[in-house]
Design a protein around this nucleic acid. Structure first.
Lengths: 111, 111
DNA sequence: CTCCTGTGCTACAAATAACGTAGCACTACG
DNA sequence: CGTAGTGCTACGTTATTTGTAGCACAGGAG
């Protein structure tokens, strides 16, 4: 699954053909572990292995795949000696998720 | 699958054994089509088939599975003769997603 | 230099989830 | 009755995820 080219290959970001960016974003974030990985990076950089540990020891295969996708999307960067960290754009995304965090609290108290 | 209690098997979302609701929510929404399905319901109720059509004709198998999960989570309801629609809680969730919509616009204009 | 450890990353088989087609039971309308 | 709509499911095929093992490289002791 090595994908040197842009996301033209395996799954052309469902819904992107409609021209609605939200569909491309929903498809990117709707893949397993993607949201979780970005979330775990919100408080600072993590090495690839620390990241796997933080994500319930997810397989390196999928973690690396998601990191590649997130890096392609310009949301995550890898700095030498510093591990992975969110780009300014990625940080913006996580800030957009703050309302979701508050919602999760209310949601957990449902029914 | 060699760890007894550490991994949650991806299925026991609503267990939330981590105690952090955001993790359960991230796990629920991080499954394929879940975000998209909820998104397509934001503007009003849809029948199951209209929903599949709206989601690029996704398989009924996964759509029904996601709808069951969303109904269990209290985010979606099925009303007789009216199709599926978001509960007040589900509508809250989609409102929490509005910042994400704005972000998608900026994101689509990236480098 | 050699051993040890940690980094990012990959191969590969097995398990799992999603896909797509077809079809069910039920209801309503003609 | 016949047709068409609903929600929903079975099942074989395909794609994705998982878990384990391991690679090449870089730095730090010994």
């Amino acid at each position: 699954m090595s994908k040197p080219a842009a996301r033209t290959k395996q799954r052309a970001v469902r819904g992107s053909r409609t021209g609605r960016p939200i569909m491309a974003l929903l498809d990117l974030l709707g893949r397993r572990w993607t949201l979780r990985i970005a979330w775990e990076l919100r408080n600072g950089p993590l090495t690839s292995r620390a990241l796997r540990t933080a994500c319930d020891d997810a397989s390196p295969t999928v973690v690396q795949a998601r990191l590649s996708e997130l890096r392609e999307a310009g949301l995550v960067e890898l700095l030498d000696g510093d591990g992975y960290h969110l780009t300014p754009l990625g940080r913006e995304l996580m800030e957009s998720f703050l309302p979701l965090h508050h919602f999760a609290e209310r949601w957990s108290r449902r029914s």
